[in-house]
Amino acid sequence: MLTRRIIPCLDCKDGRVVKGVQFQGLRDAGDPVELARSYEQQGADELVILDVSATPEGRRTAHHTVEAVRAVLSIPLTVGGGVRTVDDARALLEAGADKVSVNTAAVTSPELIDELAARFGVQCTVLALDAARPSDGRGPDFEVVIRSGKERTGRDAGAWAREAVRRGAGEILLTSWDRDGTRSGYDLEILRSVCAAVNVPVIASGGADHAGHMVEAFAVGVDAVLAASIFHDGDTTVAALKHELAAVGVPVRIESTEQNP
């Protein structure tokens, strides 16, 4: 049977891995190639690189980062951040990404999802969906936010997920904007809502602190969990987490020769 995935996320800017809380207050967290190699050795099932630079120079640097990571990496790599067009996606795939995620541009121009799926396949087309609890208690229960959380759309997260899948998204990277970087646990209600809305794999993101949070997320139906801070800060390793998950019956991939530093 298919195992549950653990996916470290590298937010990259100017060739370095950075980390902030709710996408703000970025601080340096290391070299992307070194971290990628280390996470693969620990047993990471996949990696995500998000380019958070948002400038033309930053985009070029991000391509070099993807190339350098690809050369050492023999697990799947999803890359996102600032993908607006099919050509943006193609450039990342040529640099070595296996999947491309789209976020803001997919909300403002949903046909981008159709185009990516037609050109590269659904298995290559990831919808990054940032969802937030409504600030004023009005509107949908879980609202889609874009432009790194700066803009609320008034759209319901589950409805948008359904539309994106209908258009060709093959996976959903679902981030709770309220929980991102807080280490207070995944927003289980948002996860439950989107998992019920679609039949494609869902990756939980935003709020992970320890294995217990991941067990909760898997229990509501996600296929993979993404985390950043807990790995970059060295609080735990992928291998340690997998052993904790396996001990409570979560099916994970554990290879006997993996290092557990």
């Binding site: 298919l2 995935r5 298995q123 093959g170 996976e171 039949n199 494609v200 794999p201 296929d223």
Partner: peptide
């Protein structure tokens, strides 16, 4: 879940 994405 379809597509199958992951380690089997």
């Amino acid at each position: 879940r379809v597509p199958q994405l992951g380690w089997n």
